[in-house]
């Protein structure tokens, strides 16, 4: 157990015991050492289940709109998860006063599929630990340290906001990446069209990307509506385009770049890459960043005098 882990547990115990919250949402050890799993603790005796390590991937903010509706909840959160929380507060999906945020400085999260590419047998892994910018992997035959570029999730390789932006208590220090991974999208529009066609054609419409996304909280998603039927349920390229393009537009100025959608996609669609593209467009055109506590209101719910007039602006 690391020092930060024990401080998270102490904090969770404290807020449960003194009645500040009814529930703590955090990560627990997973069924295998290279995964963790969301855990919901309402009894101070159970706080030792909480863990903090480089496979704490899940953005737990996804549970807040339902779980923190009528009760006080403490949430253990990475900086990206906290940006989700900020966005949820701004969009009135959760009340700040219902939350106790245990924020963490972050050093990036591991993508287990990359471990396999680095010729590490997943079943040999015993533990993963942060080691500076890299990751120490303890296996049955010893240990090795891999560079972040070899093992981190794509979204983490592009993330510089590794300090929590909003919290009640904060543990741990951020480790900033020495290099930022550039976007890999083709430049020419026709090539992009081809790239995304190929990506979207793989979609099986399992909706894991939507279900895991803290900002996709709509009670009935457009994709499930029958009247009007915005998109058919069949997983064919043209309907998949409709689903993905619409979802991207719904998240423009709202997606906070946690990369969860891409992590959970069973067919490896580079959704987070698309979302990163959207977020950059929003930043360039409106100087707005979703999930930043300095922003007072959601982008699409505000008008500023210097906003670009779409009629005057086509690109």
């Amino acid at each position: 157990m690391t020092e930060i882990e024990s401080r998270i547990r102490e904090e969770a115990k404290k807020v449960l015991e003194n009645g500040l919250v009814d529930l703590v949402i955090g990560w627990a050890a997973g069924s295998v050492p290279f995964r963790t799993t969301p855990v919901f603790i309402d009894n101070a005796q159970d706080v030792d289940k909480l863990v903090w390590n480089p496979v704490c991937a899940n953005n737990l903010a996804v549970y807040l709109p339902k779980m923190a509706k009528n009760r006080k909840v403490a949430i253990v959160a990475k900086p990206c998860d906290i940006r989700s929380i900020v966005a949820l507060i701004q969009e009135n999906q959760v009340k700040r006063e219902n939350l106790y945020i245990i924020g963490l400085g972050c050093a990036g999260v591991v993508d287990p599929s990359k471990l396999e590419s680095a010729a590490i047998r997943l079943s040999d892994i015993k533990a993963l630990e942060w080691e500076g910018e890299g990751i120490r992997i303890v296996t049955v035959d010893g240990e090795q340290v891999l560079r972040s570029t070899e093992v981190h999730r794509e979204m983490c390789l592009a993330c510089t906001k590794r300090e929590p932006a909003l919290y009640d208590v904060k543990f741990g220090e951020a480790v900033l990446p020495s290099q930022i991974k550039p976007r890999e999208l083709p430049e020419l529009p026709e090539e992009r069209q081809k790239y995304w066609s190929e990506q979207f054609s793989k979609c099986i419409r399992c909706y894991a990307c939507r279900q895991i996304c803290p900002n996709c909280y709509c009670e009935v998603c457009f994709a499930d509506r029958v009247e009007p039927k915005w998109t058919a349920k069949k997983a064919v390229p043209e309907e998949n385009w409709m689903f993905h393009a619409t979802r991207a537009m719904h998240l423009a100025g709202r997606c906070i770049q946690c990369g969860e959608c891409e992590r959970v996609c069973p067919v490896g669609i580079r959704i987070a890459e698309l979302m990163r593209e959207m977020a950059e467009a929003v930043k360039n055109k409106y100087d707005y960043e979703a999930g930043d506590p300095k922003e007072e209101a959601p982008l699409l719910g505000t008008f500023r005098e210097n906003d670009i007039d779409p009629a005057q602006h086509s690109e």
């Binding site: 855990v39 099986i204 894991a208 279900q211 895991i212 349920k233 959970v264 069973p266």
Partner: peptide, 25 residues
């Protein structure tokens, strides 16, 4: 159920899950 997000991954990827929907267009 508390942690499940209700997605289609486990069943759509399962080799034996057989449920389907029928739609008219």
């Amino acid at each position: 159920a508390q942690k499940c997000i209700g997605c289609g991954v486990c069943s759509y990827m399962c080799p034996s899950c057989s449920c389907f929907d029928i739609q008219d267009e």
